[in-house]
């Protein structure tokens, strides 16, 4: 297996609606999108954000944009003006998601030039 950090495969943008954050995860190349769909599941993202996101995580697919949208509930310390966090609006949760490392098989890695 080959370990690949998400920041090599995708870029992202995050924002807030109250205490809910969303993270758009966008594949750099169309051929990376299936990897995101397979490996970056809602469960995996909830686990990744343990200690930050205290609610459910929903995932939506946008194959037309080669992108996934994650909605993280109770993820901003109360949100908006209530939150005491530096990043009360969740602007940096995008790059926090890009810290995730996924494991892909060697043949796929070779085919996609990700070795």
């Amino acid at each position: 297996m080959v370990r690949v950090p998400l920041f090599k495969l995708a870029h992202a943008r995050s924002g807030d609606k109250g205490d809910t954050a969303n993270i758009g995860l966008i594949a750099y190349k169309p051929e990376y999108y299936p990897l995101l769909v397979e490996h970056v599941t809602a469960e995996r993202v909830k686990e990744h954000f343990r200690g930050i996101c205290h609610g459910d995580v929903e995932r939506y697919e946008l194959p037309n944009l080669g992108a996934l949208n994650f909605v993280l509930h109770h993820a901003l310390g109360g949100g908006g003006t209530i939150s005491l966090r530096t990043d009360a609006q969740g602007k940096t949760l995008s790059t926090a998601l890009l810290r995730m490392v996924i494991e892909i098989d060697e043949e796929t890695a070779r085919r996609l030039g990700l070795e």
């Binding site: 943008r13 969303n22 758009g24 929903e58 946008l62 944009l65």
Partner: peptide, 11 residues
């Protein structure tokens, strides 16, 4: 694309 995904819920 980054802006399309900004602050949305169910697309």
């Amino acid at each position: 694309k980054e802006q399309l995904l900004y602050e949305i819920g169910d697309p």
